[in-house]
């Protein structure tokens, strides 16, 4: 038997560890809460956005009110009250997308 085998045999002669059923329980009880994964947040964003759009489209009046209110706010903030700028619903949808992405990022950075 060479030196290498002698040492290996010696070291492995007592390496069996008895199964410790309590070990995994102790580990599991100490685990911290996991943050929501980015994939889950993206899914939540898509669901929220879809529901939001569905509600808006189902209530055309509400969409109209929302468009008017947005136009007024934009005009006010941009000092465009006296121009004849009109807001197409596509801009509202784009604003919703931007708002959802921004909100998602805020959630992601806050957790």
């Amino acid at each position: 038997m060479n030196d290498d085998e002698l040492v290996r045999q010696f070291l492995k002669s007592s390496t069996h560890l008895p199964a410790d059923e309590g070990f995994s329980q102790r580990v599991m009880s100490r685990l911290p809460r996991r943050p929501i994964s980015p994939a889950c947040i993206t899914t939540l964003e898509i669901i929220t956005f879809t529901i939001g759009i569905a509600i808006l489209l189902a209530h055309v009046d509400l969409l109209q009110v929302f468009c008017n209110a947005s136009t007024y706010m934009l005009q006010t903030f941009a000092y465009l009250r006296y121009t004849d700028i009109t807001i197409s619903p596509i801009y509202i949808v784009a604003a919703l997308v931007a708002l959802t992405v921004w909100g998602g990022n805020k959630i992601r950075t806050s957790i």
Binding site: D20, F23, S24, R34
Partner: peptide, 27 residues
């Protein structure tokens, strides 16, 4: 499963599988 769904039982399986070699190394 742990990463996507936060499945703690999946992590428990990993702990059970690797506890012996990790404990032996540290021992």
């Amino acid at each position: 499963q742990v990463l996507m769904f936060g499945n703690r039982r999946a992590f428990d399986s990993l702990v059970r599988k690797y506890q012996a070699p990790v404990r032996r190394l540290l021992l």
